[in-house]
Simulated scan of single mutants.
Amino acid sequence: MSGERERWAGHKAGVLAELCSQTIARRVSLSTRAAEEIVASTPHYRQHGPTVADLVATVWEFMVGWLTATESGGPAGPGELAAARRHGARRAAQGIAVEDVITGFYVGYRTLWRDMADRAAEQGVSEILLEASEASLGWMLEITTAISAGHHDAVAGRRVLTAAARQRLVNLASVPGATGDAEELRLAAEQAGLDPGAGLQCWWAPIGAATGEVQARIQAGLGLLPGAFAVGQVTTALLVLGHGADEEAVAAVLGEADLTSVAVGLRRTGPYAARESLTDARAAAALAAGRAGLWRFAVLWPLVITASAGERLEPLLAPAVTIAREYPHLAEAVGAFADRGLSVSAAARRLNVHPNTLSYRLERWQDLTGTDVRTVSGLTISRTAVEIAAGSPAPNS
Rank of each mutant, 00 (worst) to 15 (best):
Q94I: 05
E80C: 08
I381W: 00
G270C: 09
A336T: 05
I143Q: 08
Q219E: 15
A192G: 02
R166I: 00
R114D: 14
L19M: 10
R159P: 04
V321S: 00
G255K: 01
R114N: 12
L112T: 13
A35K: 09
H354N: 14
E36L: 14
A245S: 15
T23S: 14
V304F: 09
D246Y: 04
H354Y: 12
G223Y: 06
A324M: 08
V214Q: 15
A389W: 00
R86S: 12
I147T: 05
G88W: 00
Q366V: 03
S277W: 02
T144W: 00
R296H: 14
G65K: 09
L222H: 04
L358R: 03
A286N: 10
W204M: 10
P355W: 06
F297H: 15
E363H: 12
A146C: 05
A228S: 15
V170Y: 01
H243N: 13
G95S: 03
R158W: 08
L368I: 04
S277E: 01
A154C: 13
L368R: 13
T380A: 15
E127V: 12
A210L: 02
E71V: 12
L194T: 05
V52H: 07
E36G: 09
V28I: 11
A97L: 10
V64P: 03
M63H: 05
A165Y: 00
L137C: 03
L222A: 01
A53V: 14
R291E: 14
S377N: 11
R275D: 01
T384N: 06
S148K: 13
G270F: 08
V214P: 00
G255I: 01
S174R: 12
L225D: 07
G223A: 08
A288K: 09
A84C: 10
R217F: 01
V262N: 07
A331T: 08
P393C: 08
A385W: 06
A13C: 01
D195W: 06
